[in-house]
Design a protein around this nucleic acid. Structure first.
Length: 1036
RNA sequence: GGGCGGUUAGCUCAGCGGUAGAGCGCCUGCCUUACAAGCAGGAUGUCACUGGUUCGAAUCCAGUAUCGCCCACCA
């Protein structure tokens, strides 16, 4: 498995496709993620939110699995005893609907087929296509333990379901009874409250008048479902309603049906609404059901299971509910009972799966008595903050729901699922299951027989309840049943309770709450410590992705285009802490996504950085860098590395996956690639073997750490590179290596800020060069000058770095550091050093007169020193003999001039200028013997060495002055404009700071360190303004 | 009707009391022997609005607007 391609033959573009497939196969074949209960470390267990076995992978899965896998891989590398358990659920209603469609095509239906044949076909279907979703999960690179894969209808889980049902029944927490349920006429089954969606529809409000039975007039009622009047058994008014008080107790004659129904008083009736009187249909409306119970009204069911009206509907029997609605209205209108019709927008409950309006329907069903279970969950929440929700705000949502929760209808009139383990003694009720047929609940048919014999004698005839359980009943025990419960297996004792449940907010009620209620009741322990709730992945228009809108974005298409790591990284980096919805950029015409492409580019960047490291290593295995030989840049990257390791760990421990992903990106690209690799290049090609070896070791060490840090986010590419880098054998996987911990001793903020100054200095130089029209290939000499002791030290410490970078940037840089000044001073006895505070150089530089000769000598000495310094230090210059290098001579000239003008003093310019003239002549002389391009530029520069030579481009970094000669035909006005703009901007900041510091309140009340910081900043900015103004003046 | 979340650069989003940030896009210059899926540099903001608290508010509080989500039995 280990990559054996020589590093210099690695492709310059990363190919995620073959790589990802290879490592996915490797992980699975080698059972890298197989959990071992005996593994040391604190257990870390996640059970997968089981996708529907019918399903195929959508973006929501990709998002969720990416989050889980990142967490799981992280904790595995942290040494936890890790298990991520995969599986699917049987999705009772979804599969039934799917099979119904299939059978309809074949011209049959489930009732014709019969239960056994139906189930046989269902299982065939499951075997054939149930693997789709799990194979797609594999393409995400999920680090699950496939050996522990479960299905909610497999043997063990079915056993757990039986155990749960019988136990809850024995405890009186499951009961059978006749209640109003949500009936889906499409699937012809009851559904739970949660499986009902309210949809706003434009309907009508029909006003009807019911004649009082004593012919003394009418009472007016309004309804949105007029056909239900056929089942009315009362009219209710509010007891405090003066208008109707006298009618209470009287009866009305129900139109069409002709039966007399009472006018009753009930607080439920709203005085303000409609006519103030409301028709009561106890068998077809949840409120009316309650009213009916309170007043002992008859319950008249007018509906069949398929949504048509039954014989209780009189003349409308057999008609579909919506056909009947029209006909009832027509009849009422014809007979003068319809008062008026208004347009009316209202919410209609729809069956989530069946996509048709549900009917409140009176039927006998199985229910879970929810209060004792919900109260227990509430107690866990209130007393033990269990489970802990992340983000915290979901706690309230969860809690509120538990508080108002009502009994849960768990029976479904379907066949695919767990058949309810209740056996009816049908011999007691003439061979039929009726509402009053006695039954026994048992774990098996044999046990049922035993129980029934004891109760009804051995001639009892038993029939199992035909209904199945709500899918969520089995999903509700997923965390315990998948781990072996009710058996006390080693897995169960080790990994239960699980650590974290990761899921979407839409599933808190469906699943999370049911797990907390059921599992805690059954095992005495909450099923997980933490619930991490993520947002939704929205489409490019910020729309929720849904089948009906057909706006889903197929993760597999993006994976094919950019690779799994790229998609995963994109999704995870968008997570950030808050659990917000994320929007995925996507172009439907081209199937492209800019944000996933950016992640793909990041993978490629890492690939190429690694290629660079590999190419530049001598041997594959390197020891850690020798501490004593570490250079500034080495220490800097090590400091940054350890800081980012610290951040990553911190973020991951608080579910800040997005922040962690972003900080890694910035470190890898912005620090490691952009700076460290660049400045290490000269060392790798240089003569200094110690420096070279140190750079190599540091590169190796940091890259190795980067791969480990990034592995949970981009598992495939990191595994690939890591094997090549370390030459680890097949027995090793990066996924099982220890995650880097931050070594605090390497984190050095002072050094990092030193480095920031250097970076800023370089940036200033680059800008100056660009502004001065100096081509990248041209070598120039620049002068850095500072009056701050700290900055001077930084520049000195960074000299090597600056030189290295200068080489890369084709800059040759001379440092105006004290050590050089001292050397200058040592060359002549009386030469003053730099004035530390040249407020305005012209006036404030030392005015003490020194012999012109000495001045000249000093200037020359300085020049030579700098040149010699350059020679010994700069490879650039090695390439060309000293005096043959035209540009360096120019540089030398400039240096001399600068040295004269700014670094030394301004005493006798004339004298020096003659010396400079000498330089000029020599340079010109040299030039005539060499012909190089861009001679115009050179000519100008050379000319510029004389008296009309004044102009330099200047910038500041901190208060370090950066000066370079102007070259070529430069647009002075643009240059000045730029300077002026910088000054204006700075002056604005100065003003703001001055304002703040002159505010007594601020100075007195703000923390001293904040005030001091402001003072320092103000001082620096003022200095910068001065410097820039000075430079501006020089350009005039 | 209750509850929750969002409103910051052209786009997607971080930041959540001390001088406004990233990625993408855009502009300028570069095929520099890790990477053009790249390098260097650059421009861009009444931080939705109005008040308040504070020495200081994008950040905290109150309200408004607006977009979105969840829950809810109103005939």
């Amino acid at each position: 498995m280990t990559a054996t391609i020589p590093p210099n033959q690695l492709a310059s573009q990363y190919d995620p496709f073959s790589t990802e497939a290879r490592w996915q196969a490797y992980w699975e074949e080698n059972a890298v993620f197989k959990a071992d209960p005996n593994h040391p470390g604190e257990p870390y267990c996640v059970v997968i939110p089981p996708p529907n076995v019918t399903g195929s992978l959508h973006m929501g899965h990709a998002f969720e699995e990416a989050i889980i896998d990142t967490l799981v891989r992280y904790h595995r590398m942290k040494g936890r005893n890790t298990l991520w358990l995969p599986g699917t659920d049987h999705a009772s209603i979804a599969v039934s609907a799917l099979l119904d469609v299939q059978f309809k095509k074949e011209g049959t239906n489930r009732f014709e087929l019969g239960r056994d044949q139906y189930l046989e076909r269902a299982w065939q279907w499951k075997e054939a296509s149930g693997g789709t979703i799990t194979n797609q999960l594999r393409k995400l690179g999920v680090s699950v333990d496939w050996s522990r894969e479960r299905f909610t209808m497999d043997e063990g889980m079915s056993k757990a379901v039986l155990e749960t049902f019988t136990r809850l029944y024995d405890e009186g927490l499951i009961y059978r009874g006749e209640y109003l349920v949500n009936w889906c006429p499409a699937s012809q089954s009851a559904v739970s409250d949660l499986e009902v969606d309210q949809q706003e529809v434009k309907g009508h409000l029909w006003y009807l008048r019911y004649p009082l039975s004593d012919d003394s007039g009418f009472i007016e009622v309004a309804t949105t479902r007029p056909e239900t009047m056929l089942g009315d058994t009362a009219v209710a008014v509010n007891p405090n309603d003066q208008r109707y008080r006298h009618l209470i107790g009287k009866t009305v004659t129900l139109p069409i049906m002709g039966r007399q129904i009472p006018i009753i008083a009930d607080e439920y009736t709203d005085l303000e609404l409609g006519s103030g009187a409301v028709k009561i249909t106890p068998a077809h409306d949840p409120n009316d059901f309650e009213v009916g119970k309170r007043h002992n009204l008859p319950f008249i069911n007018i509906l069949n299971k398929d949504g048509s009206l039954n014989e209780k509907a009189g003349p409308f029997a057999g008609q579909d509910r919506f056909v009947a609605r029209k006909n009832v209205i027509q009849r009422l209108d014809a007979e003068g009972f319809l008062v008026k019709v208004e347009d009316h927008v209202h919410n209609v409950p729809y069956s989530e799966r069946g996509k048709v309006p549900i009917e409140p329907f009176l039927s006998t069903q199985w229910f879970v008595k929810i209060r004792p279970l919900a109260d227990r969950a509430l107690q866990e929440l209130d007393e033990h903050q269990s489970p802990l929700f992340v983000p915290e705000r979901w706690t309230k949502v969860y809690r509120d729901w538990l508080v108002k929760l009502e009994d849960w209808c768990i029976s479904r009139q379907l066949w695919w699922g767990h058949q309810i383990p209740a056996w009816y003694a049908i011999s007691e009720t003439e061979g039929k299951i009726t509402d009053s047929t006695p039954f026994v609940v048992a774990r098996s048919a044999a046990e049922a027989r035993e129980k029934a014999w004891a109760q009804f004698g051995s001639d009892v005839v038993l029939e199992q309840d035909p209904d199945v359980l709500d899918t969520w009943f089995s999903s509700g025990i997923w965390p315990c049943s998948t781990l072996g419960w009710p058996e006390q297996t080693q897995d169960f004792s080790t990994y239960y309770p699980t650590t974290t449940l990761v899921t979407g907010f839409d599933i808190i009620f469906f699943w999370v709450a049911r797990m907390t209620m059921m599992c805690s009741h059954l095992t005495g322990k909450m099923p997980f410590q933490t619930v991490y709730i993520h947002g939704l992945v929205r489409d490019e228009n910020n729309q929720k992705m849904s089948k009906s809108k057909n706006n889903g974005i197929d993760p597999l298409i993006l994976i094919q285009k950019y690779g799994t790591d790229a998609l995963r990284y994109t999704l995870v980096r968008e997570v950030v802490g808050a659990g917000q919805d994320i929007r995925l950029e996507y172009n439907r015409k081209t199937d492209e996504s800019a944000s996933v492409e950016a992640s793909r580019n990041f993978a490629n960047k890492l690939w190429n950085a690694s290629r660079f490291v590999l190419i530049n290593l001598d041997s594959q295995i390197l020891p850690s860098p020798e501490e004593s030989s570490l250079e500034l840049s080495d220490r800097w990257i090590l400091s940054r590395f350890n800081r980012v390791a610290q951040q990553t760990n911190r973020f991951m421990n608080t579910y800040g996956l997005g922040e962690a992903a972003k900080s890694l990106y910035e470190f890898i690209w912005g620090d490691f690639c952009d700076w460290y690799i660049e400045l290490v290049k000269p060392r790798l090609n240089g003569e200094d073997q110690t420096s070279r070896a140190t750079a190599q070791a540091t590169l190796y060490h940091v890259l190795d750490g980067i791969l480990k840090l990034l592995h949970p986010y981009m598992p495939h590419i990191t595994e690939e590179i890591w094997h090549t880098l370390t030459q680890a054998g097949e027995d090793k996987s990066l996924a099982l290596q220890a995650y880097p911990e931050a070594a605090e001793k390497w984190i050095n903020p002072a050094l990092e800020s030193q480095f920031d100054l250097l970076i800023e200095t370089i940036r200033t130089l680059r800008n100056l060069r660009a502004d001065s029209d100096i081509k990248p290939s041209q070598k120039i000499t620049a002068i850095l000058k500072t009056e701050s002791e700290a900055e001077r030290e930084t520049l000195e410490a960074g000299q090597r770095y600056i030189r290295d970078l200068a080489r890369v940037e084709s800059l040759s840089i001379q440092g105006g550091s004290r050590s050089l000044d001292e050397k200058v001073a040592n060359t002549s006895t009386e030469v003053p050093t730099v004035d530390p505070k040249p407020e305005s150089p012209q006036q404030q530089l030392p005015t003490k007169l020194v012999s012109p000769v000495l001045i000249a000598i000093s200037a020359l000495a300085l020049t030579v020193l700098l040149l010699v310094g350059s020679l010994s230090l700069l490879d650039v210059i090695n390439a060309v003999p000293l005096l043959r290098s035209f540009f360096e001579l120019v540089g030398a000239g400039y240096t001399a001039w600068f040295g004269y003008r700014y670094l030394l003093f301004t005493a006798n310019r004339k004298e020096l200028s003659s010396r400079v003239q000498t330089f000029k002549e020599r340079v010109v002389g040299e030039r005539s013997t060499e012909s190089e391009d861009s001679s115009v530029t050179r000519q100008e520069i050379v000319d510029g060495l004389g008296e009309d030579l004044k102009q330099t481009a200047a910038g500041v970094a901190g208060t370090v002055q950066v000066l370079i000669p102007l070259a070529g035909v430069v647009d002075l006005r643009a240059l000045k404009g730029k300077l002026q703009k910088d000054i204006t901007k700075l002056e604005g900041s100065v003003k703001a700071l001055e304002g703040r510091l002159s505010n007594q309140g601020y100075v007195e009340k703000a923390p001293p360190e904040v005030v001091q910081k402001s003072r320092d900043e103000l001082a620096e900015m003022r200095k910068q303004v001065e410097i820039l103004q000075e430079r501006l003046a020089k350009l005039e």
